[in-house]
Design a protein around this nucleic acid. Structure first.
Lengths: 204, 204
DNA sequence: CCTTCGTTGGAATGTCAATTCCAACGACGT
DNA sequence: ACGTCGTTGGAATTGACATTCCAACGAAGG
């Protein structure tokens, strides 16, 4: 069975996409709680009824924003993210993350991490959305380390999955401290430490 | 010059302290934005005017809560925090952090980190309060690693300050992922990775 | 005993924000 | 051309929330 009648027009999709994109930007800058539907309405140049038409309520819009931000983050880090299977690739990833923070003047933190911190405890469904988002992020990191492991570049007793989790945690914690200090040193320190640890597990 | 007339009674101090303590608990559970003055008022069993009398406005209460939480965190981790000058001590710190998360069922994240993430971008003063809070946290970690370095237990080319920052970032990122997954593995992974890196820098 | 000032209660105010409602509009398939 | 349904506008509603105000209360010092 094919899609008989599209429930939404191309025009509707465009409007919906614009709303999500602008909501994501506002929520990244000011946080979810401080971003009102009316803020989004004004910035997107739409009427309130459209937002409720497409998303049901604010929680629905927030869910869409979570999806949007994780997509944007993964797109931004690709293609590096798909080949994190060498120390050099990990260092390139680190450098890209640092450059990104510098470009933002260390403001706003991690789009996905900020959403996560603000929303984890709101509802079980939201928390699961966030779990899925981070799993999508961690997955390619894990695959890269597994490839190194399979190739014998990592010692047999090293655990690629565990290391992938540590890397992601280093990014999150590093970005938070970087945001607070307005200085990229913490992000660099955190990623350097975990990458250094991985290096110490290589079979050179 | 001594304090001529105390502007606040012992009774007043007690009331103030109770308000801060209860506000901290509520804000830890629900976040700052979702904690209304009226919530605090009800839970503390005081009238609204008292909160405004002692804190001026909600921002003032939030500042007091930041101070309260960093004090509580440091008190909780002491005396470990004051002697982080060996791999064993670092591991004990890690174990205590993990046990704490487990006791909370991995809910709520880090009290200080959650406040930080929610409030960093609200105002320059708040961000500076947070910088001070994290500096107070990082300082003893740094001192411990410096002691190891001075004793020659860390290689000369190791940078204790940089490593201290990485440790704190690992805690923050690890706790965030732990909160999202409701599983202490990420916190353990993150701290293990950085501690492992430090171990690889020891002169054994 | 009296005055002062910190303390407390509780109602009142005004703003802001989420959500609903209804009517109009227009694209698209028949 | 016509009718259906997705789309849009904008006003109206409802509730929550931060903050203010004023009056009463009580402890501590003179």
């Amino acid at each position: 069975m094919t899609t008989s009648t599209p429930r939404v027009t191309a025009q509707g999709q465009a409007t919906r996409a614009r709303i999500v994109s602008i909501a994501a930007e506002l929520m990244s800058k000011q946080g979810v709680a401080r971003t009102s539907i009316d803020d989004v309405r004004g910035a997107a140049g739409v009427s309130a009824s459209q937002i409720y038409h497409y998303f049901g309520d604010k929680a629905g819009l927030v869910r869409a924003v979570i999806g949007f931000q994780i997509d944007a983050t993964l797109d931004y880090q690709r293609p590096i993210l798909d080949h994190l299977d060498s120390i050099e690739a990990l260092e390139a990833w680190r450098d890209k993350a640092i450059a990104n923070q510098r470009a933002r003047h260390c403001e706003g933190g991690c789009d996905v991490g900020s959403l996560a911190s603000e929303l984890v405890e709101t509802s079980t469904e939201t928390r699961q959305d966030l779990m899925v988002a981070f799993e999508r992020w961690e997955s390619p990191v894990r695959e890269g380390l597994r490839a190194m492991h399979a190739r014998g570049e990592l010692r047999a007793d090293a655990d690629p999955d565990y290391l992938a989790t540590a890397l992601l945690a280093a990014v999150q914690g590093g970005v938070l401290l970087t945001q607070i200090r307005r200085d990229t040193t913490p992000l660099r320190a955190a990623m350097d430490a975990v990458i250094g640890h991985i290096r110490s597990l290589t079979t050179r």
